[in-house]
Design a protein around this nucleic acid. Structure first.
Lengths: 188, 188
DNA sequence: TTTTGTTGATTGACGAGTCAATAAAAATAC
DNA sequence: GTATTTTTATTGACTCGTCAATCAACAAAA
């Protein structure tokens, strides 16, 4: 039972944060959504903060897996770049609720060392993936360029919480790929 | 008295959000920091949400004024671009506490129409400022380019909540200016 | 019968918002 | 220039609700 319940709680946590946009969700709300009592949620996770951290780990794991999957298919540096970008803006990751979760994790990261650590791991992996793909194309400029691309990805991603229109992965990907082409010196 | 107290409350709100990293600050904490009772804070603002919205308006006003000031000095499109970027990463705006405030405003924008509206105004102004400066340099590509530059600014800005190192405006400006040069086709 | 799963009820803390009461200042009348 | 009324400034104490966390008790496997 334990693994099933834990999983249900993580999904419910993400759904509830997505629904309300905040981490001001009660354990009861989460537990109810996951089909159990709040006492059971406490029983399995110990406390609210730990539920959030687990949800964060889960989200990062899913994202990481998707990136790795896309990278495995790629053969050239260019394809690798495209894979990284597309994975980040895929329909799994680029939805209002998932974006809300990420945004709230940034907020949590200011308070919780563990959350901060997790986001730094994400940032580091993104950076190193980008550098790996960029190096053959731009040499020493790879690291700086990776920071720009990474920043752009995060910026475009976060900006989607604004306005009413549902996020368009296509536009986002197009914009980032254009920026990459600029980095590679292939436009103008 | 009223204007003095209101002002003190806004500053205290920003300081407290910066200190804790969250909007989970009590009205009492804010009022105490501003040197008055929580009852008085309620008296002048009506409620917590309204305090937050006023603090948000204040932050955006300060930022807007700084950008306008920098733009007034600029004579060429290039200088205008630099002015916009530098204002955003100035020592007034690019500090852990102010960044925390912005981040939390993004979170609030998901729930509150008014907060959403305010952030959209910011986004719109940034975009139009950038387009205005970019048009003479890149013509029709200006709008698309402005989205990329704007996204990069927001991304680099937000990323600073991570890690322990205090934000370096210099690095941030350098990165964005480099991206702009790439947009202008002056590198490689 | 021991371990695992599960909950309703409870506790204890905390916090937003209200209110009645008091003090001080400003306006008005005499 | 003083007496008065009205407005503004201010707070401590209180209410009411909410919520995280605990626990004792019960059910169901193992």
């Amino acid at each position: 039972m334990e693994p099933i319940r834990r999983d249900a709680l993580l999904k419910a946590t993400i759904a509830e944060i997505g629904r309300t946009g905040t981490m001001d969700v009660t354990v009861s709300q989460i537990a109810k959504k996951a089909g159990m009592s709040s006492a059971l949620a406490h029983h399995y996770f110990g406390g609210k903060e730990q539920i959030f951290l687990a949800a964060m780990r889960h989200t990062l794991t899913v994202y990481g897996a998707e990136v790795r999957g896309a990278l495995a298919m790629a053969e050239t540096p260019r394809e690798r770049l495209k894979a990284i970008v597309c994975a980040g803006f895929s329909t799994t990751n680029f939805r209002k609720d998932v974006i809300a979760v990420w945004l709230n994790f940034y907020v949590l990261a200011q308070r919780s060392d563990e959350a901060n650590r997790l986001l730094l791991v994400y940032k580091g992996r993104l950076h190193s993936n980008l550098v790996h793909a960029l190096r053959p194309l731009v040499g020493d400029r790879a690291s700086d360029a990776a920071d720009r691309i990474g920043g752009l990805i995060d910026g475009i991603y976060i900006r989607q919480v604004l306005g009413a229109t549902p996020p368009s992965g296509k536009d986002a990907v197009r914009q980032v790929l254009t920026a990459i082409e600029l980095e590679l010196g292939n436009i103008k």
